[in-house]
């Protein structure tokens, strides 16, 4: 699905979080929102997911205005920085949650839910852990379960907030490849937020470099990793990717 961000701005009270930004994300792309904290990248992601409402501007999904859609209507698979797994539910129940939450008329039958959850557990290469509770998992396993849970609702896009932020370096490298594989397999338009330029450059097709300022976060440069490296558009980008 193609995502367009049209002159979106956001202020929390009197604090500006985003100056009007525009961005077009082609269908099936893997995009990184890269920037330091305070650059509004997470705010932008949350606006895409319907968790925040923009102060001004529009969001378009496949050319249609989606600004007024509720978070439930958007069907965006969202992976939170803290993973936000339901700790009183098993891994299986966590992944099945979105399917079971559907109204009776469109809810898949029980066997179908089991089949899909089992498939997702295989996709994240953790077929054995369905009966465990989140507290019994490692950080990397939790992240993958959160991803599977987001994929279970057959999302129209995948949004990830610092998906590797809480993991150590080795696990981070492994899971990067995992995300790449899942993206290639599902073909979902995927947007992830990161402050790690190496991660953005290595993983994304398209990198959006953002910076923060008094008037709110703004976009410094949009481009392929190689182009950004070769031709940084501003001093900010040059120093940020050098870090």
């Amino acid at each position: 699905m193609k995502i367009e961000i049209d002159e979106i701005s956001k202020a929390f009270g009197t604090t500006a979080a985003l100056t009007p930004v525009s961005l077009s994300i082609p269908s099936g792309a893997l995009v990184a929102l890269l920037g330091p904290s305070g650059s509004g990248k997470t705010t932008l992601l949350r606006i895409l997911g319907g968790l925040e409402f923009p102060t001004s501007g529009r969001v378009l999904f496949d050319g249609q205005d989606a600004t007024g859609l509720t978070v439930q209507q958007r069907r965006a698979g969202f992976v939170f920085q803290s993973y936000a797994l339901f700790r009183h539910m098993t891994v299986f129940e966590n992944i099945a949650y979105g399917l079971r939450a559907r109204p009776r008329a469109v809810r898949p039958p029980k066997a179908e839910i089991t089949r899909r959850v089992t498939k997702l557990l295989e996709l994240i290469q953790l077929p054995e852990i369905g009966a465990r509770y989140p507290s019994q998992l490692s950080g990397g396993q939790r992240q993958r379960v959160a991803l599977a849970r987001a994929l279970a609702i057959e999302p129209r896009m995948l949004l990830l907030d610092e998906p590797f932020g809480a993991l150590d370096a080795k696990v981070r490298k492994e899971l990067r490849q995992g995300l790449r594989d899942i993206h290639d397999e599902t073909g979902l338009t995927t947007v992830f937020v990161t402050h790690d330029q190496e991660e953005a450059m290595e993983l994304a097709d398209l990198v959006v470099v953002m910076s923060g300022s008094q008037t709110g976060g703004r976009i410094e440069q949009i481009g392929k990793p190689a182009d950004i490296r070769a031709r940084p558009a501003s001093d900010f980008v040059r120093s940020f990717i050098a870090a």
Binding site: P20, S56, T67, G68
Partner: peptide
């Protein structure tokens, strides 16, 4: 900041929480 009046949402947004 820019003029925001043209973009006032038709329905009041309710946070999902």
């Amino acid at each position: 900041m820019s003029d925001l009046s043209h973009a006032t949402p038709a329905r009041r947004f309710r946070a999902p929480t």
